[in-house]
């Protein structure tokens, strides 16, 4: 398991420098430029106005609703995502290929259609929806519908982060454990979970980021009722519609900052944990850690 030494040397050739410069220029233009433009516009009227905007009750309530949806979606899709990854990789059964394909469908469906689909199926005037609503569980235009939309949109993320790792490590260790008499829960806890934990963490982080930012499906499912079903992204949309671009930029900065901060924190935690676990002498080379643990996000 010796990692490859990156082909870096202090004396870089000119073509290499040129390549790095080109990549950085492209990156700056495409990713950094817009991000800086966003933050600049959010901060333009001053830091006080930034927080004042954020403290408005509509903004706080929309953030709180987004937090609730994100929490529910992340918990559900992480638990079931792990389960589905295990089923997909470790079990062979009729329909496994189908399952594999269906898992990617949420990527392929335009969010507007995803929302429409939930209304067709669970809307209060549909058969299922009216039943549920009679039982006191209205779906569409209420919190459950928005959670469903979030679940749909983010379903593949955890599975696709965990499954490749499971596949790569194989099932030898698990089998040894079970021949030694460990029950499946112990095997899962002691063997499987530690190997896939970074995949889980990374997948869940993506789920959080994606559900913080979901817009199209929520616009259709929520009814955009201020203070009841208005999420943070719908708040952004509303601010654009009421000629308050500043409010839109502020909330966007917060949303982007939250998910981005999370991704960075994850990376940092991963590097630190790894250094502690694998001792100091190997961790001098930062690429070593990444090599062994970065989950391949190959969907």
């Amino acid at each position: 398991m010796k990692p490859p030494k990156p082909a870096t040397s202090p004396e870089m050739t000119w073509p290499q420098r040129f390549l790095i410069a080109a990549v950085l220029a492209w990156f700056g233009l495409l990713i950094l430029g817009p991000a800086v433009a966003l933050v600049r516009r959010a901060m333009e009227p001053g830091i006080g106005r930034f927080f004042a905007k954020l403290a408005e009750p509509d903004a706080i309530e929309s953030l709180w609703l987004t937090a609730k949806i994100t929490a529910a979606v992340t918990v559900c899709n992480t638990i079931f995502g792990i389960g589905m990854a295990i089923v997909l990789v470790r079990q062979r059964f009729w329909g496994r290929r189908l399952m594999d394909g269906v898992l990617d469908l949420p990527f392929a469906v335009s969010p507007v259609i995803a929302g429409l689909m939930l209304i067709i199926l669970y809307g209060p005037r549909s058969t299922i929806g009216s039943r549920l609503s009679d039982m006191g569980l209205p779906i569409v235009y209420h919190l459950p519908g928005m959670i469903l939309a979030g679940l749909f949109v983010t379903l593949p993320l955890v599975v696709r982060s965990v499954a490749p790792i499971l596949e790569e490590v194989g099932s030898d260790q698990e089998e040894v454990a079970s021949t030694l008499g460990a029950d499946w829960w112990t095997t899962f806890r002691k063997i499987t979970l530690p190997t896939i934990r970074w995949g889980i963490a990374y997948g869940s982080a993506l789920v959080v980021a994606r559900s913080l930012g979901e817009f199209g499906a929520l616009l259709v499912v929520s009814g955009n009722i201020i203070g009841r079903t208005q999420t943070a992204t719908l708040y952004v949309h509303d601010q654009v519609e009421s000629f308050e671009p500043h409010g839109a930029y502020v909330m966007s900065t917060v949303l982007a900052g939250l998910s981005f901060g999370m991704l960075i924190a994850l990376e940092a935690v991963r590097n630190r944990t790894h250094r502690q676990e694998y001792g100091a002498e190997e961790s001098q080379d930062p690429s070593v850690e990444r090599k062994t643990i970065r989950p391949t996000r190959r969907h």
Partner: peptide, 20 residues
């Protein structure tokens, strides 16, 4: 780290950023 930024930014915001 910033490579993942597009995942983190809500898409309407992307549009506003690019127009800006």
């Amino acid at each position: 780290a910033l490579v993942d930024l597009p995942f983190a930014v809500p898409t309407i915001v992307t549009g506003l950023m690019l127009v800006a």
